[in-house]
């Protein structure tokens, strides 16, 4: 099992979520976060934005589904400009459903 953490543009959130739902991955967690990348924020004229608003999507999927999910996320969050976001994949050892007690 793998945990996928995707940091995407807030305006692209709906596209990504609907596409994931269509691909069969309706279960996810989202959080509104602030962050910056290699460019250290954004310079618009005299104004410097240190941290930019992003949406963090968190999914746990089977190993086989990882490329598919990553493809769906990249296809739908890509604009080609700086600030499109990142996807991180990490190992999950165990998942446990509280309601049924499955997986322990």
């Amino acid at each position: 099992m793998k945990m996928i953490r995707a940091i995407v543009r807030p305006e692209k959130e709906d596209d990504v979520v609907l596409a994931l739902e269509g691909a069969g991955f309706p279960a996810m967690t989202k959080a509104h976060v602030f962050g910056r990348g290699k460019q250290k924020g954004l310079q618009v004229g005299p104004v410097h934005y240190d941290l930019l608003s992003k949406v963090l999507l968190l999914l746990v999927v089977n190993d086989d589904d990882v490329p598919k999910v990553m493809g769906v996320i990249t296809d739908n969050s890509k604009t080609g400009f700086i600030g499109d976001g990142k996807i991180f994949v990490s190992e999950v050892e165990d998942a446990y459903t509280i309601r049924t007690g499955e997986g322990l």
Partner: peptide, 21 residues
Amino acid sequence: IETIANVNRSGRFGDGKVFTL
């Protein structure tokens, strides 16, 4: 995990998940 699960189990959808990394 058992402690979290026992407290939170209501038997209805939406009780939540626990992951270990």
